[in-house]
Design a protein around this nucleic acid. Structure first.
Lengths: 216, 216
DNA sequence: TGAACTGTGGTCAGTATCTGACCATGAGTC
DNA sequence: GACTCATGGTCAGATACTGACCACAGTTCA
């Protein structure tokens, strides 16, 4: 409650307004079609002011990614704290991951592009770093779920961590991609969630069958 | 939702912040002891900025008075619209008037000073004008209530409008003044309201008695 | 009584913040 | 390969804000 505090508050409020405006536009149109001028107008500022708070259009984009990734990390932080069985944790993680991309389809496009090793996105090292980091976090957590599942007896001890981790990661992204870019938008969420759910159930059943058959 | 609108909004927000800060300080300490610097600090601005929005300390004060007076006027606007009998309207007006000064005891002090014709407040013509105007509005409404009471048969047609108007105005201010500046603050509101209520009831009964006795 | 002191309303030169015309560049067109 | 167009980024000028400073009224004290 002072003069300096007020100015600091207003500065942060400006930065947040720019980010909020940019997020909406990026979400609607993607990266390239959004002009800095349009971000400025939506944030009720001039273009020059936008450059007072961020050094480039890309920096704005990177900041949005960073925020989203942090939010994702916070959400998966507690996955193991509810005493769920491994398949349930796997299912919860999938839904968090789906939420994430329903909220930011553009990020998914970047992620896919990144995974395909194309360089035409022309993203900075910083942005790339965030994406890599997030990808690693997600992949690592899947591996941890399998590890946990083995320890708890949900999965047979013979499952190959790395192999299953990659399989889940692949099927998750594959299903999301398939539905995110095709079909009716209105039914998209429902289609993704139900397909992922069914596929995961099938997959987990398959894991146990292997075990059962091995025992028989 | 545009750039110009945002700047206008922020300007108004600054003016409002200054007024809000000043109101609190004036209410606590009166006019003189409040420094412009203290208003600025409470509004999280510098003194110079305060002078960007208002030309003088007195102008700030006048603006607060004006706002309060306008609020008062809005409240009494509908007094006649509920089909109440004249004594009830009189009672409601009294309570609005009491609310007004419980909210701004300093204004009451000014009003009393003004009514005593002393010039030591050194208020500008503008401030004086507002006070006169408000006083006139209140006095006029009391007279109207008596007029209305005669028409509706609540009061005998023989009552002298001007005489009764002055009497009510005097007793109202007298009771408020007595309790506002004496006794325990905690019980102040209750003391004022109950005394005014009892006095008004007595007064109205007196009016009718005159009528009854005249008829007998 | 008047010199010195004190406190505060009001000023203004300096600083921070904001703006949009302008420039450089790259993509698309013929 | 010259031209047009769109847009990311720059910067000189405009706007908003700050606090040291001044004038002066009121107070103290010899």
């Amino acid at each position: 409650m002072g003069l300096a505090e007020r100015r600091k508050r207003e500065k942060e409020s400006r930065k947040a307004a720019i980010l909020k405006a940019a997020r909406k536009l990026f979400f609607e149109k993607g990266f390239k079609p959004v002009t800095v001028e349009s971000i400025a107008r939506k944030a009720e500022l001039s273009k020059g002011s936008v450059y007072l708070y961020y050094n480039s259009k890309e920096e704005i984009y990177a900041q949005i990614l960073l925020n989203d990734i942090e939010k994702f990390n916070r959400k998966i932080e507690n996955l193991f704290n509810y005493g769920d069985h491994a398949p349930e944790i796997l299912y919860k993680l999938s839904n968090i991951y789906i939420d994430f991309f329903l909220h930011d389809t553009e990020l998914f496009r970047i992620l896919v592009t990144y995974m395909l090793h194309t360089e035409d996105m022309n993203l900075s090292e910083e942005v790339n770093h965030h994406i890599v980091k997030m990808t690693n976090v997600a992949i690592t957590i899947i591996e941890k779920i399998f590890q946990y599942g083995i320890e708890k007896g949900d999965f047979p001890p013979t499952v190959n961590l790395r192999q299953n981790r990659n399989a889940i990661w692949g099927l998750l992204n594959g299903i999301i991609a398939l539905h995110l870019f095709t079909g009716d938008v209105a039914t998209r969420e429902e289609r993704i969630r139900s397909t992922v759910k069914a596929t995961l159930e099938m997959y987990v059943r398959g894991l146990s069958d292997v075990n059962t058959r091995a025992k028989a």
